[in-house]
Design a protein around this nucleic acid. Structure first.
Lengths: 216, 216
DNA sequence: CGCATATGGATAGTGTACCTTTCCGATAGC
DNA sequence: GCTATCGGAAAGGTACACTATCCATATGCG
């Protein structure tokens, strides 16, 4: 197909597709003449993936490029690829870390008996965690760290489901894409369902009229 | 204090504070002369909250304004306030909904025996859920909906911890702020811990060399 | 063949969001 | 009195994600 049909089938405007081609988010089509190129279903699939990452995952164009680069790297174990994808989709942010929050993270790691984690800032993921706890501290919620253990408990169930979902995929390529989709779209789904769970608990516990805590 | 000290104590540049004042994210200080104003610890606290919402929560200035408006509304039950805050922090996004994904959401609600949910788009939260499932479908992951139930199972533990954390707060104002912090910073913490859980499972299950699924 | 439409490629422009800079006259505080 | 800072307003700047324009060429229909 040519770019017009690619646009029609994906819902992405032609100029945007050209932009993605320029930015390296889509591989170039096969040139049949100096100004004619053919695109196939792989391009369509990739284009839809890009839109999912941008629209639902909220990734920047640069982050999408990093994710796709990690996905397309062939000479890596799945474990390494997961790590690369995770780094790519976890942009650092510009929050300065509170040393106490860093200690909280290290204590959390020690409690779980996991890796050494000498430097929290060496990974975007641990940096994100430390940054979030730092922000909580800055608004007087130093005890937010107490939620780490129950969070992990609930997330074990969720991560288990994630892994089973990924294992259900057929080819290695599908596994990798499911990893990306499952992580990023899963984040959004988790956010939404968590809010629904909050609303449910709120209705059950504090929603009854006249059953509120004393006013300040 | 005046704006200079507010800046020093919060780490936010003076022009940015002025910008937030213009945008209504911070209440004006008390004028002692036509061009002198005093700010107190409430301003500092609010400023740090704004930065936490922007830096960690990733909210836009407009969304922060909506959240603060919901927080500052006094004549509402806690349940209603939670709903207002949730709506404010869940921006719709521009994904068109797949009718099949909408059915998935409705089936999920029916399974949980919860509210009617006649219109999925009436709430930003359900819209976000339907949009995420729509995006999953667009990349060939229609079965992603199967994760909703295990997600909810894990999130029940997490939401329980959230509610207990909120209940631990003293005043009604603290409860409301803990709701905002807990929801938004909690999202980021959940994201980070989920990635750590993935990495842990990945190391245990598929990380061993030579123990990978067959190549495509 | 003729001709409107579409194409690939390059360059420039648009709109939004979030600040910064600059300016002003007035005030603080030594 | 003098310098730094202030509040307030307006203009400027930067980054990002497109979007529009242009051009020579190619397609495809009649």
């Amino acid at each position: 197909m040519r770019v017009g049909e690619l646009s029609k089938r994906s819902g992405v405007p032609v100029p945007t597709i050209k932009y993605y081609l320029r930015e390296g988010l889509l591989p170039a089509g096969v040139l049949t003449s100096p100004n004619q190129a053919h695109y196939d279903d792989e391009h369509l699939r990739r284009l839809r993936l890009v839109r999912a990452l941008v629209d639902v995952g909220g990734l920047s164009i640069a982050a999408v490029r990093d994710v796709l680069a990690a996905v397309d790297t062939r000479d890596d174990s799945l474990h390494n690829k997961l790590g690369a994808v995770q780094e790519a989709i976890s942009q650092p942010g510009s929050v300065e870390l509170d040393p106490l929050a860093v200690e909280d993270v290290q204590a959390f790691f020690a409690r779980q008996g996991e890796r050494e984690c000498a430097d929290v800032t060496e990974s975007n993921v641990t940096h994100m965690l430390a940054a979030a706890l730092s922000a909580a501290r800055s608004v007087g919620h130093g005890h937010f760290r107490d939620l780490l253990d129950p969070y992990l408990e609930g997330l074990k169930i969720i991560a288990q489901a994630d892994v089973e979902y990924i294992a259900r995929q057929g080819s290695r390529d599908d596994v990798i894409e499911a990893m990306v989709i499952g992580t990023l779209i899963g984040d959004t789904v988790l956010k939404a369902v968590r809010r629904l769970a909050h609303a449910q608990v709120s209705r059950d516990v504090i929603g009854r009229v006249g059953n509120e805590p004393a006013a300040n």
